[in-house]
């Protein structure tokens, strides 16, 4: 069994450390995948986080006799990992742009994107922490829908709820985050 499969099993059995370990594992895999793809593919290509997540699934779990019931844990971890990756990149790019780094910064083959996009990403990220304090389910939906770019249907499958519930939560969360970010800027 792969590490990921072991960890998924451990999570099911209630091992609290396993979730953190799985997150780290998935994070590393996704970061590696993203970096290598970004470096190789033609400029202008948008990489779908969802494709990356699926590929990570295949690499980490799919190749090893998976227990598919555990998919939810995996995709939740992947969404969180994706969020961290994106935030990480945004921070580093902004830092670079603002001269915040005096050392050589390795950008993993990225072109600097529009600063607004990065600002927004970071803003969403920060606001999301607040959202999850009162509305954990909605925050989870945001992670899957936004950071892992999953569809309502996919998100519904992972969270074991109906697609219309996902849609409602998503709507609420977008509005909530929009308001939060607006407030923090004013």
């Amino acid at each position: 069994m792969s590490n990921a499969t072991v960890l998924l099993t451990a999570i099911e059995q209630g091992d609290p450390k396993a979730a953190e370990n799985l997150l780290n594992l998935v994070y590393e895999e996704l970061r590696r995948l993203a970096t290598s793809k970004m470096a190789r593919e033609a400029p202008g290509q948008t990489l779908q986080p969802t494709a990356l997540v699926h590929e990570a699934w295949l690499r980490l779990v799919g190749s090893q006799n998976p227990k598919f019931e555990n998919k939810a844990h995996f995709f939740s971890a992947a969404a969180e990992a994706m969020r961290r990756i994106l935030i990480d990149r945004a921070r580093r790019k902004l830092a670079l742009r603002h001269g915040g780094e005096c050392e050589h910064v390795h950008l993993d083959g990225f072109e600097p994107a529009a600063p607004e996009a990065d600002q927004q990403l970071l803003a969403v990220h920060e606001a999301l922490d607040k959202l999850s304090a009162d509305h954990p389910v909605e925050a989870e939906v945001v992670k899957l829908r936004y950071f892992a770019s999953m569809t309502n249907e996919e998100t519904a499958q992972v969270l074991n709820m109906s697609a219309s519930s996902v849609k409602n939560y998503w709507n609420f969360a977008r509005t909530w985050l929009f308001r939060e970010i607006e407030r923090s800027r004013s």
Binding site: Q45, E111, A113, D118, S149
Partner: peptide, 9 residues
């Protein structure tokens, strides 16, 4: 999807 997941601006 988050904008900085594009290989170029």
């Amino acid at each position: 999807p988050p904008q900085n997941f594009t290989t170029a601006a």
